[in-house]
């Protein structure tokens, strides 16, 4: 079984406050695993915050319950992984392919940025839960 060296979990309403809470959780996670390089910490944090922000900004409720954001982050010896979920949400609307916005566009760069920051991104939908799984192979020796 793969050894999990450190982990953090967040779940709460998909609102602005959640973004700061997730970011603070990641900052504290890195303190537990100082062998993870600054570059890995920086890139992975950025990808997770992009994904969580995407849910807070765009996820639509599937029914009467408000959408909740869930972020589960684990550090394994050579792998950083985050499951970023929208609970009680409709399936994502619109293309899930990264856009290539013009130089003066003020939005639309998030998905391309996430793909550039992690090794793989996969999407799962189960019931009324959308989950993006972000994995980054750690660059440690």
């Amino acid at each position: 079984m793969t050894e999990v060296l450190a982990a953090r979990s967040f779940r709460g309403p998909a609102a602005e406050d959640a973004i700061e809470a997730v970011h603070n959780g990641l900052d504290s996670l890195w303190l537990d695993v100082p062998f993870v390089t600054d570059m890995d910490q920086m890139t992975f944090t950025t990808a997770v915050i992009e994904s969580a922000s995407n849910i807070v900004q765009h996820a639509q409720p599937a029914g009467e319950r408000e959408v909740e954001l869930g972020v589960e982050t684990t550090v394994q010896p050579a792998l950083l992984q985050a499951r970023v979920s929208a609970y009680y949400a409709k399936p994502p609307f619109g293309p899930m392919e990264p856009a290539t916005p013009g130089d003066d566009a003020e939005s639309g760069r998030g998905l391309a940025l996430i793909e550039a920051l992690v090794t793989t991104v996969t999407f799962e939908r189960q019931g009324a839960t959308n989950t993006w799984v972000l994995s980054r192979t750690s660059s440690q020796d």
């Binding site: 992009e50 760069r109 998030g110 940025l113």
Partner: peptide, 16 residues
């Protein structure tokens, strides 16, 4: 210390 694509979008808006 940190900027995401929303922050980048805001800088571009300010530039414009």
């Amino acid at each position: 210390a940190f900027m995401d694509s929303s922050g980048l979008g805001a800088l571009i808006g300010c530039l414009k």
